[in-house]
Design a protein around this nucleic acid. Structure first.
Lengths: 213, 213, 213, 213
DNA sequence: GATGAATGAGACTTCATTCAT
DNA sequence: TATGAATGAAGTCTCATTCAT
């Protein structure tokens, strides 16, 4: 078709990758905006590809959802390492990390997983993985902050992860022009984690508590 | 109209009312457990009535959802008045109220309304009403607690209502055997509302902020 | 409940009859206005009775439809005898009869029978009966008019009956404020039945042609 | 774009078009035979496609109905131009046109539109259009015939269109083996339009009378 | 690889009819 | 006898997924 030395074969890959990325980005927004049940065709339309293309990349809705989550977590981990590596101020690093999590807006997609899947959660390897990695990331910060008396000692890293989930979802309940409200509430929660609060009921949250939630 | 037994006239009505109640109760659970999209037939089956009966009582899924919410809010308001009437200890009353809200498990149904309806919310008169009534209920408590120095003064009753929403939904993300975790986090948030926290970004949440959220 | 010598028992029958009549009248209108498929409940509502009452009087939709038709035909036959008895002017009587048929507005209901029932027609005894009676009524008029040279001789009474059906349905296609149009077209058809027209294709319509239409 | 065979590019489109055509043809018959309420699935089955395909082509029953009508009117206009162009005998052309209308069997579908839509009619652009086009087509014929004394002068083109509607629907009331009856009655009506008839009541039908019928 | 038409299972909703009061 | 609540079959429509081009 063309006389130039075919630059096509390499391009193909690039196009496909670009499609894949656009689909994930579109799906992320669509899941947040219209719920986990958005018609696949709407996602395809948003990404400006045919449904067929969407299905070539992701076997079914579940697979797409997992990919969206994985992509989000990837971004989260990248970002968070920047915040936390070589932290000399563990409490400050913890705070920045929490604020970042909220800003990434993963909440909508993550909480979309809830219905019917309390247990299906476990089957999504990416999630368990991410929690594990997040635990490893946060644990030194939590301990460090507690040792320095910057943080109450009756909460665990497990509590932190669940609280982050709460804030992240909270953000997604608000319309875009009201996001500033979440920022206030993030700070309130962080203040609640400072030493000097009242007694907390029950034991701290541990890794094993994640097995069923 | 009279106190006499009068057994005959109101009979069938009673059956119908019982059905209506069972449908609402079943739907409440179903919405929480399987999401807002549960097949209507499953709800009907759970309530042990035919689909037709369900539809005689509620014109469509939306109507049922609204009824479930209205019923929940009714319970909430009843309960909350018990907690807050004649309160001599505003902060204590506020805390008990928050804990109660969480225990009532309205969160699942309420947050089920989110997708596609950030603004449709307004059209659900019951919700706007309830927020207004809640505001009126809480405002004296918040002010009272703040006047006595029991609560930070840079949060408003509007913030409180949104925070309650957050906790209430948080509770519903957890499986039944992990509810105790929420109780811990409720206390952390309450601690964060005590005086002495860091500065909060943005203005306090006011009534007008509800118009779009 | 009352002190007067109970006038109730006799009233009951009267009430029931009144209900029956109201149902038929309402159904007649409803069939014409909303088609043969109107919800039974709508008919009941229009007649201001419960569905149950409707079903006590008429076993099912079909039965109601037949009753409506029978009532209409009854009125038609009554009226038409007034027009045609002792007629000394057969053509004039025929014309008056045709105009009356149209005015009675049976068309909607009659034509409602069409779909799916080309043959079911035969099963509705009332219809076959009525056609037979109409035939007996009109035959002398047609023959009389033809003998006097007032009417073309290449049409039969069978043609007349079918033409009347056409005009009667025609009337029902027009909205109420356009009924006057039908009156014009009735006259055009009657003019077309006068002697002197062009040749007509096919044989005249006979009784046996009704068996399948 | 080119006259060359170009076998590849338009292929699937052809299949889709074939499906669309078959659906319309099947629906036309089904509407006539079983009424406007035929199950969509039956139409799909008749056209040998899945329901989904039917719905991909036509958003709902209404849309399908409109398409059927549009297709019918298209055929009608094509055919009628053949009859009427360059007519040197206006009355003869008018007669041939009327006979053609009846033969095309559009009546069933057109009259299926009646219930509940006396006014909705206007919203079906195709219908209003067609009436307008038909008016323009017939008007010269009517005037020509009247000027030559071949047609009574107290009827208008508006009357003609409504009469055609009557005959067209009339044809559809009869079973297939009785179609010959309509042909007789068409001639009777045409004879009634000849000069010399009795006086007609009311004014002639004008364009403005269509606005509400 | 991309496309979008076709498919059919399944959810939603309506209504004719029954039945307990 | 009248009532209207309950039932469930049947029809409409949507959408995930497949597949021919």
């Amino acid at each position: 078709m063309s006389t130039a030395p075919s630059p096509v074969p390499a391009r193909r890959r690039a196009d496909a990758q670009r499609n894949r990325d656009r689909i994930i980005a579109t799906a992320h927004l669509a899941f947040i905006r219209h719920g986990i049940g958005v018609p696949m065709e709407e996602i395809a339309r948003g990404a400006e590809v045919g449904v067929g293309t969407l299905y070539r990349h992701f076997a079914d809705r579940e697979a797409l959802l997992r990919a969206v989550i994985a992509a989000g977590l990837e971004r989260l981990m990248t970002v968070s390492r920047q915040e936390t590596d070589h932290a000399t101020d563990p409490w400050g690093a913890l705070c920045r990390f929490v604020r970042r999590c909220v800003e990434l807006r993963l909440g909508g997609t993550l909480s979309a997983l809830r219905p019917r899947m309390a247990q299906a959660m476990k089957e999504i390897a990416e999630l368990a993985d991410a929690r594990q990695r997040m635990l490893e990331l946060l644990d030194p910060l939590v301990r460090g902050a507690q040792e320095r008396g910057q943080m109450r000692t009756d909460v665990s890293t497990g509590d932190m992860i669940i609280l982050i989930g709460m804030l992240v979802r909270h953000e997604c309940e608000l319309t875009e022009d009201k996001e500033w409200i979440t920022r206030r509430h993030v700070e309130i929660v962080l203040d609640g984690l400072r030493p000097g609060g009242g007694e907390l009921p029950g034991p701290t949250v541990t890794l094993t508590d994640f097995h069923h939630d």
